[in-house]
Design a protein around this nucleic acid. Structure first.
Lengths: 155, 155
DNA sequence: AGGGGTCAGTTCAAGTCATGAAGTTACCCC
DNA sequence: GGGGTAACTTCATGACTTGAACTGACCCCT
């Protein structure tokens, strides 16, 4: 069951690639939530599915379940740092959705108030990387500059 | 079935939020592909699922099916511009996967060869937007700068 | 003309998973 | 003791997925 997956896209989708998981992450990005809060905000999720997804996310160290009150016992769920890092995935989905599917909501920067998008970025060169230049290659091939590289030729 | 979804994340997931679809998109990002090529590169996908996903992607205008040879009839699949825009979603999944799941492959800029990441970007301010500042709000609330806004309070 | 191969799927039985309604446990307050 | 809330489970049904096998159109070779 746990055979390691070479492709980072496939590896990530194995953890969060189903109909509900990223909606749960979306709501947890806004802060800690209790079971029934998620049940209401993740529109239409059956409680059995919510429970099983939360447990899967917990064992993947994406969310953490915390007892926040004894007597009666009450629990809350929150993202780990690993889980917060999924924010960009959710953001990319939102960015696409606001452009290509009709949606009422939109991504903004809370400080300047402008609409924002999700892009590739090269931290070494400190600049945006155009989509067409991006490739997926073996780790040993990264960091070797030059354009003579053949692995994933674009269209 | 086609009730409109308000949240752009939910709207996007309704189209591509299953176990296989984004793997198909991942491989089509490298260029046009034939049915059996996808069958081999999308590891383990049953042909019935591939056929049904391709037809769903076609009717969502994400891929286009083209006859590229008569006698024998042969088809190829390629991304529409809409579909190419999903590249950033796949990139965000890859970025997370290369950091948090063990994977042998990594994202690079084909020109400078450096590893790249996926980030939020404010095109108006021409700068990167830190993850913590990003919110999802109603469209009418975008573009109004200022910090007095309450919709989605962070943790 | 017959045999073998490729491509692009389809068909089908079996199994797995999701769904929605209802129930459960533990506790509180009145 | 009656009612309410929170956090789940349980269960029967139905939908979807899976893997193996099959189909049909066409090619090339002998």
């Amino acid at each position: 069951m746990n055979r390691s997956v070479r492709c980072p896209v496939a590896a990530t989708l194995q953890l969060v690639g189903d109909r509900w998981t990223l909606l749960i992450v979306r709501d947890l990005l806004r802060g800690r939530r209790r079971f029934n809060e998620l049940r209401e905000s993740v529109e239409g999720i059956p409680p059995a599915v919510l429970a099983s997804r939360l447990r899967a996310l917990e064992s993947a160290a994406i969310v953490q379940r915390r007892l926040y009150q004894d007597r009666p016992r009450r629990f809350e769920y929150r993202l780990t740092p690993r889980g917060h890092a999924l924010g960009v995935v959710v953001g990319a989905l939102a960015d696409w959705g606001q452009r290509y599917a009709e949606a009422d909501l939109t991504l903004v920067d809370g400080e300047c108030g402008h609409g924002i998008s999700v892009v590739y970025h090269c931290p070494t060169c400190a600049r945006e990387a155009p989509r067409r230049r991006v490739r997926i290659v073996g780790r040993e091939q990264a960091r070797l500059p030059g354009r003579e590289r053949q692995p994933t030729l674009p269209e």
